[in-house]
Amino acid sequence: MIGTDSFWLAGALAVAGIIVLRFSWARRSRSMGLNATGWAFLLAGIVVGVAGEGAWGIAVASLFAIGTALILLLKAVFEQPRWKRAARTFRQPANTQVPNESRPVGKLATFAITGLLSLVAVVLFALAARLALLAMGASEADGNVSVLGLVPLIWPLLVFTLLMTESRKVQLTVVGLIVTASLSILILAGGSA
């Protein structure tokens, strides 16, 4: 597909940003100036992309940046010397235990809370957010799309947050609070569109 001038400029800025960052991060000492220049080029690529071509411009400029990084990464493979010694094998004493949850019931409970219950909680949250958006004057289309978009965005973050929480009580409290608050809004509003 043929692009416009702004599309090529956005792509060039994205490529330049990655190259400058590569140069900057390869130095022995940090250079705030070079780092800032690299990030500024990337940002400029995004700005030019969105100004000239909208969301399409950002998407394509991002592909330029990722592609450049992968090419530089491929080059990095051959910059490292071939490992002359035998491959490192890390061995620890056989009695070292892997520090993870060993009880099947505990694992199942973790899966049920962080995976399934959290999904229910997030769906309820998104439905409540939809009602809040509609109450604030958003269009029905935007309200409905918010449900479609919020769940894939918030659910993985909640899963991760819950897994970072070691206490089962805290996990249940967080999920319980989201469910209770969301259900309250849904029930009070009567679930109407």
């Binding site: 960052l21 990095a76 490292q80 490992w83 491959a87 490192r88 890390f90």
Partner: peptide, 16 residues
């Protein structure tokens, strides 16, 4: 994540 962003020791042939 950033310091190592271009470090790829692929030719070591081990876990690293």
């Amino acid at each position: 994540v950033f310091r190592d962003a271009f470090r790829l020791r692929a030719r070591r042939g081990d876990d690293v």
